[in-house]
Simulated assay, not measured.
Amino acid sequence: MTVRAILAVLALLIPAAAHSAHTTPSDLVTERVVLVMRHGIRAPLEGEVPEGTRSERPWPVWSVAQSVVTPHGERALEIVAETDRRLLASRGLLDAAGCPKAGSASIVANTSPRAIASAVAYVRGFAPQCDLKVLHLEEPQADPIFEPLRAKATAFNADAAVADINRSTGGMARLVARDRKELALLNGVLGCGRDDCLPPAIATRGHDIALSGPIRSASGIAQVLLLQYLEGMPAEQVGWGRIDAAGLQRLGRLHADLFTVYTRPPYMAAHQASALGRRILDTLDHGPAFELLMGHDTNVTALAAALGVDLRAEGYATNDVPPGGAILIERLRDVRSGLRYVRASYRTQSPEALRELGAQVSLTPLRIPGCAKGPCRYDAFAAAFAQRLAK
């Protein structure tokens, strides 16, 4: 090739490369959005405070049955849905008010009553008095989007999973040693008058994986204490008045340990985010303008792990997803070049906002590995993300 020919090729390549490198948000318009969200504030699950846990005084009584989303939780979902609608309107995706155009919005929930009730409450805030249906399978079906292990949606191997969990965490003994200060704090809140208020062991089985010991016991108790605060219980009832918001954030590390085991190791993330990830890509490719997938904290943390990001928000331990917390994924188009990009954010409300039913919302950018400081090229993202999902 002659020097003139080489220079001609470079003249074609350099502007395109420079344009790609300097694409800014002002050049981009949002084409589609997927929101993967945890359900709202609920009463404790059955066994979330394990049998055998000792405490100085009885636990506070909730206004609803076990695992049910509370009226306070429903109102918080309505409020955050209103702010989400305004956000989507600011992106030019939907009108700020009124009913979304037919086919422009989709609301999908897991089969659990708390997920369905949360989605219904969200619709009340997002599109009040509109005929926007919540789509879901009927119990006892397992929806592979939200419960891939129970649905046996992938070729999951329990032995391979346990080996990868041990590689990623260093083993349960290491987690216990790392969190000894938080475990001591939890024992102090329980106030049972003994060195260890937790039951000596508890096991749960899920697709042939069992986790037992202090981490499994403590994770649920830490979550129940946080839920008391978010529900707006009087301060003297939240941990019997022995803990404040800062202490609850510290204890959140114990709850996040559950995801350190069940969703964040690479093997677990690949299987836990399998059908969910493919649903996201399918929607971003040719779905409605907006889709909400209302599930559980395991769904949000599994997606984060598959994306290769940690979830950090005001008032919460890293990777401890609060009720109503969500990952927002946008497909974007550069109006000048026509190239498509993807951008991810973590949308949450602080503990105080949830407790007081405030409208303040945080939207934290998520830096996906392999991307520059700005959005990722969509085709490269989709190919890399799909490879991380199990079959």
Rank of each mutant, 00 (worst) to 15 (best):
A326C: 10
A115C: 14
R250K: 15
L132C: 10
S362G: 14
G324V: 11
V80K: 14
D285C: 03
D179A: 15
W59R: 07
A151R: 15
P58K: 10
T2Y: 03
E74T: 08
P44F: 12
A160C: 05
S20P: 04
C130F: 01
C192Q: 02
F381L: 07
S337M: 09
A155E: 10
G324R: 02
R216V: 14
C192F: 02
I221V: 14
L185N: 10
A235E: 02
I280S: 07
Y378W: 04
R32C: 15
S67E: 03
L186C: 15
A326Y: 05
D196V: 09
D244M: 13
V34P: 07
A96Y: 00
C192G: 09
F381P: 06
R194F: 14
L328A: 12
E330H: 11
V69M: 07
G47C: 11
C99T: 05
P25Y: 15
Y316T: 03
R85G: 10
A383Y: 04
R167E: 12
A390M: 10
A117K: 12
T111M: 11
I243Q: 05
S104T: 10
R377T: 06
R91A: 07
K373I: 10
V69C: 11
G170M: 07
P128H: 00
R57L: 13
G171W: 09
W62P: 05
V123W: 09
G47M: 06
G98L: 03
M172W: 08
E314F: 14
L357G: 09
V9Q: 04
G358T: 00
I107N: 11
E182F: 15
R91F: 03
A155F: 12
K391G: 15
Y346L: 15
C192W: 00
R216C: 15
I79Y: 10
Q223M: 14
V68E: 13
G338D: 00
Y346N: 04
L132Q: 08
A142D: 01
A155S: 14
L248R: 14
K181T: 12
D282G: 11
P113M: 05
P288A: 04
G52D: 02
D282P: 01
Y122E: 03
P200N: 06
D195M: 11
A65Q: 04
T263K: 04
R312A: 03
L211N: 13
D297W: 06
Q272E: 02
G193S: 10
Q387F: 05
S219T: 12
F290W: 10
A380W: 01
D320L: 07
Y316A: 05
L137S: 13
R279S: 05
S90K: 04
A306H: 01
G287E: 01
G193Y: 08
